[in-house]
Design a protein around this nucleic acid. Sequence first.
DNA 1: GTCTATATAGCGATAGAC
DNA 2: GTCTATCGCTATATAGAC
Lengths: 232, 232
Amino acid sequence: MARVSFREQVLRAREDAIVSSVNRLLAQRGYDGMTIDAVAADVGIAKAVLYKHFSSKESLAAAAMVKVLERAQARLGELAAQPASALERLKAVVRWTMQEQLAGEMPALPAQNSTLRSALMADQGYLGKLMEVSDRLGEWITQAQADGDLDAALPPEVVLYTLYARACDPVLAVLKASGGYSDERIIELLLATTFGGLQARAAVAAAPAISRKGPTRSPGSPARSTKAGSGR
Amino acid sequence: MARVSFREQVLRAREDAIVSSVNRLLAQRGYDGMTIDAVAADVGIAKAVLYKHFSSKESLAAAAMVKVLERAQARLGELAAQPASALERLKAVVRWTMQEQLAGEMPALPAQNSTLRSALMADQGYLGKLMEVSDRLGEWITQAQADGDLDAALPPEVVLYTLYARACDPVLAVLKASGGYSDERIIELLLATTFGGLQARAAVAAAPAISRKGPTRSPGSPARSTKAGSGR
DNA sequence: GTCTATATAGCGATAGAC
DNA sequence: GTCTATCGCTATATAGAC
């Protein structure tokens, strides 16, 4: 019994290592760019061993998504324990998702992949966790609307989807790549643009005051300061 | 000379048809999901003929992106001719990109694909058009900030990237798939969430007043109205 | 100049050696 | 129980028939 339990433990530990690698590789290269060989190499095991744990590439992605949702659940639990308004909690959640993104720990799935989506929709573990997370966020959203902190004219599900979308917002990666901003500054900027549109009023009050370089520019001379491009 | 010109014209017409198909297929299945065979079948020509016009899949995608930028340029020109504030023009641009998305005409590229990105960054036509569009949008952005309509604390490039990101916002597709909203309603909702975060004040004034079903709900009973889920 | 048939390669998945 | 070598499939790209 003890030996079986020990073996179980070893297997679980390795599964954790696998899922962790998948998480990182998904974040770096995306689902299509991630190869099974790369996963095996990253974990340091043979590909055949990988298939002893997960039957397909899709199940690997599903496991990674479940792990992300579990981490999100843990974060939600922490936030629920702290005294804060619903809006503050929602902001903290989005901040966390952005930190995960910057840390390269937020897996990126294709917006619409038929086989992958089918696999995810068939995965009860994934669906269950997703619904639990969505329910808790939904409670905070409606609460924040009742508090007058979020625009009550927006259907809660629109707010929910928007929060999910910000967890994989490409703007963050572009700003990071541009190199002109610190991680914390990027998060503050995106929090400002995100919740400025979600809260009912006083949009930018949440963002710290920002000192512009040089004297205040005359409104008459815009002079194209945005030639960056950097192609989507 | 006339015959050559005629042949030229035929070739150009077919290239337009090809690019049009690529646009649609990119919007439907994404870059990785789009196969060359599907493009040839959609256009109604043989695959070999396709390669007479475009040397690779990447050049197909680049051509599609250039076409989108050209359409955007045309739209920007129309808007520039009309009397309106910079903010109104920016809103009109975003509205247009969302209409394109809903019409299935907005090609979707992977967020980070090494070979594709390299090909795009090497495409002078693409880069030139992108910079032209970005310059014009940048002018409107700084103007809107000078007008006090956009948050002046946001770097213009952050606003620019955010506008680009909304042109392929997955939230739109999710709301469309949910079936609960008309196309126009979806656009109004996303315009509200987008510019609420970008304009300095009076966030939701742009969105039309929305009549909620039933009597005003008591703030004390949130009762999870968001169990939708719909996976990422 | 257009299509059929094929070359080539990369990747997911598996069988067999040790 | 772990790894090497390979299968089979799909998709990009091309050569040759008509």
